[in-house]
Amino acid sequence: MIFVGGLPFSTEPSSSSSSQRSESDALFSLMEHPILVSASQSFKCTQERKVSALDDSDSKYVYIFQREYATVNSALVHYVGTDEATTCVGLVIQNRRNGMTSVAHLDSPTIVDIGLAQMLLLVAHNSFDAELDVHLIGGFDDVTPNHANGSTISQSHVELDGYSFPLCAKIIETLRRRQEKFHIQTLFVLGHNTKRDSQGNAYPIFTGFLVETSTGSLIPASFDRTSRCPDEIVRRIRVSSCYEDASWNGKLLETYDTQTDRFVIAPCCWTLRQLRIIKTLQHLCDAEILLTCSTSPSAEAPDFVETLRRQWNHLIKHPDWRQSFPKKQARVFERTAGGDWKRC
Rank of each mutant, 00 (worst) to 15 (best):
F304W: 07
T307R: 14
H314Y: 03
C293I: 03
R309K: 11
W321L: 04
C293S: 09
P297F: 00
E300S: 06
E306F: 07
E306M: 06
L290Y: 04
I289E: 03
R310C: 02
R322F: 05
H314D: 03
F325D: 04
W312Y: 04
H318P: 00
R322A: 10
Q323W: 07
W321D: 01
P326L: 15
I316Y: 09
S294H: 11
L291F: 08
W312K: 03
E306V: 06
A301G: 06
F325Q: 09
R310F: 00
E306Q: 09
K328T: 13
N313W: 02
A301E: 07
P297T: 04
L290G: 05
F325G: 10
R322M: 08
P319F: 07
V305C: 07
Q323D: 12
R322V: 11
P319Y: 10
R310P: 01
L291K: 14
C293W: 09
I289W: 05
L315N: 02
S294K: 12
T295Q: 04
N313T: 02
I289F: 01
Q311S: 00
S296P: 04
N313P: 01
S294Q: 07
S294M: 11
R322Y: 05
C293P: 06
V305A: 02
R322H: 12
R310L: 01
I316H: 13
Q311M: 08
P326Y: 15
L290S: 09
T307D: 09
A299F: 11
W321F: 08
S298Q: 15
P297L: 02
P302S: 13
P302I: 02
C293R: 06
D320V: 08
S298A: 14
W321I: 06
L315R: 05
P297C: 07
S296L: 00
K327N: 11
D303W: 12
P302M: 07
H314R: 00
